[in-house]
């Protein structure tokens, strides 16, 4: 599991690649800490290379979304593949995230 964070056109873009399972979640949590300090900037999470996500990963995304909403930022999930999309569907996350 690899994560990168960049700022592109005033948006914070986080790229997740690999498998976000329970074992990988604590590291990802640490890696994505900067997103919690977005200070009103919109967040884009690029999932193009995200192959798998478990509920621990979902909780991570939910935490980011909740914090962003508090400061009025948007969180957009980008290029979600079918496997991950199914999990988001099953958990109702499709209705609380924005997709691109």
């Amino acid at each position: 599991m690899k994560t990168t964070i960049q700022e592109i056109d005033g948006k914070i873009v986080a790229t997740l690649s690999g498998e976000l399972d329970t074992a990988a979640a604590p590291q990802a949590q640490t890696d994505l800490q900067p997103l919690l300090e977005s200070k009103g900037k919109d967040i884009v999470i690029d999932c193009t290379e995200l192959e798998y996500i478990a509920s621990s990963g979902l909780r991570l995304l939910l935490g980011i979304l909740k914090d962003a909403k508090e400061v009025g930022s948007r969180v957009v999930l980008k290029n979600v593949n079918e496997v991950v999309r199914d999990v988001l569907d099953l958990t109702g996350f499709v209705s609380i995230f924005e997709f691109e």
Binding site: R59, L65, I96
Partner: peptide, 15 residues
């Protein structure tokens, strides 16, 4: 977990 709640009211567990 109740999958119909909005982001603010979503509990972290139960998924």
């Amino acid at each position: 977990a109740d999958t119909t709640l909005d982001a603010q009211n979503r509990p972290i567990g139960g998924l």
